[in-house]
Amino acid sequence: MFSYVKDLGIDVLFKGHNFLRLMGGLLVTLKISLISIAISVVLGLAFGILMQKKNIAVRVVSRIYIDFIRIMPQLVLLFIVYFGSTRAFRINLTGELSAIIVFSLWGIAEMGEIVRGSLSSVSNHQYESAEALGLSRLQTFIYVILPQSLRRIIPISINLITRMIKTTSLVLMIGVVEMIKVAQQIIEANRMLSKNAAFGVYLVVFILYFLICWPISVLSMKLEKRWKQC
């Protein structure tokens, strides 16, 4: 049994503090993801509502922002913020902070698009019925439009959230020691002793990502199914 574990190369994780270190890396991954997601959800909602405005300046600026963020690979954005900010603004951002900035910028743009799309998919008749009943604009938004939109927003944005969690793996490129970076370090250190370490350690990394993202996407499917009925 033990030899089987050795062949997979998982044994290195049981040496010293290796497994704890990997969990530490996981915490860094989760910290960056969760903070960015929280910022994206709150500001993305506001951004989406703002984009409903017919003001041309608002439209142009938000369009440019969204397109810029979408066209740029996240890695390039990370490099621009992490390395560029030091040169351009003479501020020294830590890798984690740069990562949170980049992922929030990305999340706000994507979230804003989701919110805008969902809001505008609510039919005009809903606004008119609510207004005809004497509801104010704010009341119409809070009691009629937003609840209907949220049923569309939540399942799609959960998809965005899992994408954001997965993509945080890129931050190892700006020197942040997150889960994959720790995994690499463990593999490197045990290269001579355990030839299969790469397979075993990455397998565990895979399982950890899966354990985080899978429940989230199951939740999204369940919500979608439940809300489809109404």
Binding site: H125, Q126, E128, G134
Partner: peptide, 27 residues
Amino acid sequence: IGMVFQNYELFPHKNVLDNIILAPIKV
């Protein structure tokens, strides 16, 4: 002024009773 439209514009996320009582309570 009570208005009823051609298209049934009930609020799809609220049940019948909640559709009816929303405006009397909030407005």
